[in-house]
């Protein structure tokens, strides 16, 4: 017997499988170490760049905060970013110096703070040739989130590029635009950018539909 969504719903198109929350135990499947499970041969995690990667080594950190102002300590985040030259490395290969994709999580143990070890991405051009400011696309999954939320992390010290970025400028409210800018701190030997994601209410982060 076939599911209804493997039959055409319109003349030519099927319906997407519906989304459901990743739930509180998402770590068992996508972040084994955090669930307390032993690692498999290779795991997808939060170190996108090795010391050999081109570009400026940085850390991205932040928290996820709910509508009550409380920390969300069971979120899983996925990052997608260009390399230092503005190219996406689509072939995921842990032997390569840089990967465009990674995962991290907020937990009780890390006091609700996620972290990526990466390099600062270069500028990426849209098809129309307009350059976007350096950015990292983030997807947020968690218990109570029925379908992942997409946002972008931009860098405070790229003011000129940010001012010209067509995607940042598509956010109508200049106040809300600020929710996409990570602030720079001096970390241990390398810059650290802090980016808190507010799911709801005052200072709510801009989320994108694409």
């Amino acid at each position: 017997m076939q599911q209804p969504n493997s039959q055409p719903c319109a003349a030519t198109m099927l319906r997407e499988t519906a989304s459901q929350t990743a739930g509180p135990y998402v770590h068992i499947g996508l972040a084994l170490d955090i669930a307390g499970l032993p690692p498999r041969e290779e795991e997808i995690w939060n170190r996108l760049a090795s010391p050999e990667a081109d570009g400026e080594a940085i850390e991205l950190v932040g928290r996820v905060i709910d509508g009550n102002g409380d920390l969300v300590r069971d979120a899983l985040l996925e990052a997608w970013q260009a390399d230092a030259h503005g190219n996406y490395q689509c072939e995921f290969d842990l032997q390569a110096p840089f990967n465009s994709f990674g995962r991290t999580a907020t937990t009780v143990e890390n006091d609700g703070e996620w972290c990526f070890h990466t390099i600062k991405p270069g500028q990426v051009a849209r098809r129309d040739g307009r350059l976007m400011a350096p950015h990292v696309t983030l997807a947020v999954f968690a218990r109570g989130i029925n379908i992942q939320l997409h946002t972008r992390l931009y860098f405070e010290d790229e003011a000129e590029a940010n001012a010209a970025c067509p995607v940042l400028n598509a956010v109508e409210s200049p106040t809300r635009r600020q929710t996409l800018i990570a602030t720079r701190e001096e970390g241990e030997g390398k810059p650290r950018y802090r980016f808190d994601i507010r799911l709801q209410g005052e200072g709510e982060t801009v989320f994108f539909d694409f």
Binding site: D66, G67, N68, D70, V72, A142, R143, G144, I145, L149, A170, V171, R176, L199, Q200, G201, E204, T205, V206, F207, F208, D209
Partner: peptide
């Protein structure tokens, strides 16, 4: 408490 109240861009 975990659902955005603003419209997505």
């Amino acid at each position: 408490a975990r659902s955005p109240s603003q419209a997505y861009v």
